[in-house]
Design a protein around this nucleic acid. Structure first.
Ligand SMILES: [Zn+2]
Ligand SMILES: [Zn+2]
Ligand SMILES: [Zn+2]
Ligand SMILES: [Zn+2]
Lengths: 141, 141
DNA sequence: TATTTAATGCAACTTTGTTGCATTAGTTAA
DNA sequence: TTAACTAATGCAACAAAGTTGCATTAAATA
């Protein structure tokens, strides 16, 4: 988890993640604070290409995921999406859940619902990524 | 569905799919006949780059999917995979199911098991793509 | 304020997949 | 068998998402 707002010396605490509270990090954190739905890396690049380089965006997202502040998954085209974690740490992500992508507006949300994966004979199930597609609240009327 | 082995005039029956029984089509069909697991487009390109161009491979896979002979899905990196259909037609694919990717050997299989997607309030569920990851029979010992 | 080094920008690259167009080769019918 | 038709192919160029190396910049610390 990000420790920005504490007064501790970050470098002693975080190992792989974000160590410095830069302008770029602040902009991205603010964006995820402002918007409750998931955001694709591509969208962030479009949105902030005047503020920062796409390399910077990819690198910050990567570190925020390491920190347990964001989690990532693939949308319907295999493109990367990010959303805020709830209660994850830099040791482990434990907020694994299905995602819902609207086929009309493209919006993606985290689903609090759990999907039961049945046991599969002779196989050890580790993780499962579930992307449900359909029409979201606004587009379904 | 592919009508290769019938004596009908294909052009009257197929509309969007494959019309001619070319060498490239035969090679790819044979490969899916030979191998029961799913095959990624990338693997096919590696395997047959001496026999045919990658453009040709992508185009044939696309048409075989239209024909209801293959179905496609995305693996863990968002790369495209194909596997044989069971009982699909050029009108509709009705063999939608989860897929299992081994994190050790990378192999992907179709799972006959059905996963129950719960109803989600205020949303119309259309399709769901489920990729389960873990260890396959051979790697799990 | 000077020092340290994490973070950044940039260009070049990689990988997967697509497009346009000239050429090749299945299929059909004479 | 042969000629005509056109689906299928190869090739080169392109597109989009994401990565890498390296010189430069700017947070954090003392
Ligand atoms: Zn998480
Ligand atoms: Zn989520
Ligand atoms: Zn199918
Ligand atoms: Zn399948």
């Amino acid at each position: 988890m990000i420790l920005f707002f504490s007064t501790f010396k970050l470098s002693y605490i975080c190992v792989m993640g974000i160590l410095r509270k830069t302008k770029s990090v602040k902009i991205l954190l603010d964006e995820f604070e402002k918007q409750s739905t998931a955001i694709s890396a591509i969208t962030l690049i479009e949105r902030f290409h005047l503020n920062m380089n796409k390399t910077t965006i990819y690198r910050i997202l990567d570190k925020l995921e390491d920190d347990g502040f964001l989690h990532s998954f693939l949308g319907k085209n295999g493109h990367k999406w990010y959303a805020k974690c709830i209660g994850c740490t830099n040791v482990e992500h434990h907020d694994i859940h299905p995602h819902f992508q609207c086929l009309d507006c493209g919006k993606v949300d985290c689903l609090p619902t759990d999907v039961l994966i049945p046991n599969i004979p002779n196989r050890k199930v580790d993780v499962s990524q579930i992307l449900i597609q359909g029409k979201c609240e606004e587009c379904f009327s």
